[in-house]
Design a protein around this nucleic acid. Structure first.
Length: 275
DNA sequence: AGCCCATCCTGTCCGC
DNA sequence: TGCGGACAGGATGGGC
């Protein structure tokens, strides 16, 4: 669910409601969020009375910084949700953490059906170290020369796997990689380093326009994605290939959309329009 | 270096 | 209506 545009939408909603707020308390409802990936070192007690200074996004990661130097590092993975809801609403069994605030009747909930996501309590330097070592550059901040250079540096990788690799470029997931490659007219299994200059240009443009448009439409709601205030996105109405196996291509109106496993993920493409 | 696969979880959907 | 298997927006680690 949550790729760069969805995470951006969630963060924008949280920022406007929560920046400057003082924490009343942070409570974990599940003993473990994710056995493998959680690396919390701080006790939830540390956050009591601290002020939220800033909330932002890096790739698909969400970062909260608080007064006193502590922070939260959050990843929604496949089914994670981060949203504000009335405190009196009873949390269900998939709600793993809640944070309440002084002078606010709503509280922040972290909910994740599959428990792949994490919400780690860490000091800011540790968060920044992790984010910078684990993530490549932001796709919307790359110019053409940098983008081209980056393609060349991992040139043997299939372009689909390249786009999905967070260490190379941060924030693109399975839906947007397919939508980007379709609009660029490039087959997902092409080696990244073998694209012509014209294709590199098309790919760069498609990447930015798809991400920007998706942010503008507040993300894609495939099954149950909702933003910080429970609103659905509308970019799913603009999907041209994702989950359209067997249906006619919306560009050539002739070929059927194909589905193949590439980079370990279902990949949708038009065999005529993408070369 | 890069690919495929299994794995962490729970829920849903589809075919029999 | 039940049951088993495949699959799902992510990411990692092992083996080849």
């Amino acid at each position: 669910m949550p790729e760069l545009p969805e995470v951006e939408t969630v963060v924008a909603g949280l920022r406007s409601r929560l920046e400057g707020r003082r924490v009343r308390e942070l409570v974990f409802l599940s003993p473990h969020l994710s056995r493998k990936q959680s690396f919390s070192v701080l006790s939830p007690e540390v956050y009591r009375g601290k002020k939220i200074e800033r909330i932002w996004r890096r790739g698909k990661m969400i970062i909260f910084s608080f007064s006193g130097g502590c922070g939260l590092l959050i990843h929604l993975k496949m089914t994670g949700q981060l949203y504000l809801c009335p405190s009196e609403q009873f949390p269900d069994k998939h709600t793993h953490a809640r944070m309440t605030f002084s002078g606010l009747k709503e509280e922040l909930r972290f909910r994740d059906i599959r428990k792949f996501g994490f919400l780690d309590c860490l000091r800011m330097p540790e968060i920044l170290r992790r984010v910078n070592s684990e993530l490549g550059p932001e796709p919307l901040a790359l110019n053409l020369a940098e983008f081209r250079d980056l393609l060349g540096r991992h040139g043997r990788k299939k372009i689909k796997a390249w786009l999905l690799d967070q260490k190379i470029i941060a924030g693109i997931g399975n839906i947007y990689s397919d939508e980007i490659l379709f609009r660029a007219g490039i087959k997902p299994d092409r080696p990244a380093g073998e694209l012509s200059l014209d294709e590199v240009r098309k790919l760069s443009r498609a990447m930015k326009s798809v991400l920007r448009k998706a942010i503008e439409l507040k993300g894609s709601s495939i099954s149950d994605y909702v933003d910080a205030s429970g609103e659905k996105g509308r970019f799913q109405q603009k999907h041209l290939v994702y989950d359209r196996e067997g249906q006619p291509c919306l560009r050539c109106r002739k070929s059927a959309i194909r589905r193949e496993k590439i980079a370990g993920r279902s990949s949708f493409f038009c065999p005529s329009c993408q070369r």
